[in-house]
């Protein structure tokens, strides 16, 4: 009798994975909007310099602080540079600096979380308390201290972002590892004599990746913000590079004469951050059904 038990399964038509993903995306409009925004900015980052109407550093003092017009749709800044062009060209730095910072944090945080969680005991304790120390200092303050000593540059900003976000990623990864560690498939692997490396990378890692993806996407939105803040404080990308945060920073002085100088860069930052936020929410819903937010 038992032979038949497994044979009579309902034949469910299995749609392709791609169409399932598309359906899931379309079901939540915010996810769709988020992805659209991010893709739009990503496209700008790639082709921006080729489609910008003006060179980003072209000064035209005769046309300084022009309000938005047909010629300059977002207006011009204090040197008469086209804000629209600068925003387009600047998007590349945002992705490169915030993106590489996030990637660095995700990679190092993953390693720290995996080893610390799997080893457990006193090593885990020491590592995690070390992470707590980093977390206990306000990120902007810590970033400023480091950048003052390293000197402001794109590379240093990414390194700082990467360093600052290691603890967040490591904590998420570690908590997932702690949960997985007690599952019986891990014990079954130990019973057949698997090495720790196999258990860590072949049994545990694949189950951590969805969590890592969600966490990284969330970190990315924070990283954009942090990079912009550092730029605003003059510690990030240096002039005359068209950095969004820097543009907001410089705009402070001219705000009373020309509000668009501030509004457009600030609005662009907000738009991208919201877009990435929507996207990461959608990612969470897709990858971790039933999971709860940890932020």
């Amino acid at each position: 009798m038992a032979e038949i038990e497994t044979l009579q399964r309902h034949n469910m038509s299995t749609p392709s994975k791609f169409s399932i993903v598309v359906k899931k995306i379309l079901r939540r409009p915010t996810t769709f909007i988020g992805i659209a925004i991010v893709l739009f900015f990503l496209l700008l980052a790639i082709i921006g310099p080729y489609i910008a109407p003006y060179p980003y550093s072209a000064q035209n003092l005769a046309e300084k602080l022009q309000p938005p017009s047909e010629k300059h749709i977002f207006g011009t800044d204090q040197f008469g540079r086209d804000i629209f062009s600068r925003l387009i060209v600047g998007s590349r730095d945002v992705f490169v600096v915030a993106g590489s910072g996030t990637a660095l944090a995700a990679f190092l945080g993953l390693l720290v979380g995996l080893f610390s969680g799997y080893r457990g005991g006193i090593i885990d304790e020491i590592v995690m308390r070390g992470m707590d120390v980093i977390l206990s200092i306000p990120p902007l303050l810590l970033a400023m201290v480091i950048l003052f000593s390293l000197g402001p540059s794109k590379v240093n900003v990414s390194l700082v972002v990467g360093f600052l976000y290691i603890p967040m990623v490591a904590r998420v990864v570690r908590s997932v590892v702690l949960d997985l560690k007690t599952r019986q498939f891990i014990e079954a692997a130990k019973l057949r004599g698997e090495s720790s490396a196999y258990i860590l990378f072949k049994e545990i890692l694949p189950n951590v990746l969805p969590y890592l993806a969600v966490e990284a996407s969330m970190r990315f939105s924070y990283a954009i913000f942090l990079v912009a803040s550092l730029g605003f404080l003059g510690l990030g990308v240096q002039p005359p590079s068209p950095d969004w945060g820097l543009m907001v920073g410089e705009a402070r002085n001219w705000f009373h004469q020309a509000r668009w100088v501030l509004y457009f860069p600030a609005g662009t930052i907000a738009l991208l951050v919201v877009g990435v936020g929507f996207m990461s929410d959608g990612l969470r819903n897709m990858l971790l059904p039933g999971g709860v937010s940890d932020d």
Binding site: M1, A2, E3, I4, E5, Q8, R9, H10
Partner: peptide, 8 residues
């Protein structure tokens, strides 16, 4: 004895 199959 066992009942083959699944609850629909």
């Amino acid at each position: 004895s066992s009942i083959p199959g699944f609850i629909p």
